[in-house]
Design a protein around this nucleic acid. Structure first.
Length: 111
DNA sequence: CCTGTGACTCCCG
DNA sequence: CCGGGAGCCACAG
């Protein structure tokens, strides 16, 4: 927190940490909320850097289809699904069921 | 300064 | 329906 070179990352961390339990969001939604819409990759990348260093609930962040694309980066692919199911979500083959119902948009929820 | 890479997303055929 | 390509921004070497 001395250097501000990770300014973008901090924003991602803050948003992800604000995701309510049992809710999920997409990389594009966060990127758009940060103003870097189109740079959804940066959000995922920020999570990679944050993953081992922070207590970021990255498992609440999935791709636009509600698919657990980044589960492989959790160390244990099953951990991501288990964590989400533990919060009341239903996942089949890495695909979140009723994703649109559990979708949490920072740009609208936080407003 | 240039290049490579990435947990994404959209468009086209 | 499914695959491939391009666009995108930030960071490391």
């Amino acid at each position: 927190m001395k250097d501000k070179k990770g300014n973008f990352f901090e924003d991602v961390y803050a948003v992800v940490k604000l995701i309510p339990k049992g809710r999920v969001t997409s990389y594009g939604a966060i990127a758009s909320y940060l103003g870097s819409k189109g740079s959804a990759r940066m959000v995922g990348w920020a999570l990679i850097a944050a993953h081992p260093l922070t207590d970021l609930p990255a498992y609440r962040v999935v791709n636009r289809n509600g698919l657990l694309t980044g589960k492989q980066h959790f160390g244990d692919p099953n951990a991501m699904q288990s964590a989400l199911e533990s919060e009341g979500l239903i996942i089949i083959k890495d695909q979140i069921q009723d994703f649109d119902k559990h979708f949490w948009d920072p740009a609208k929820e936080l407003l």
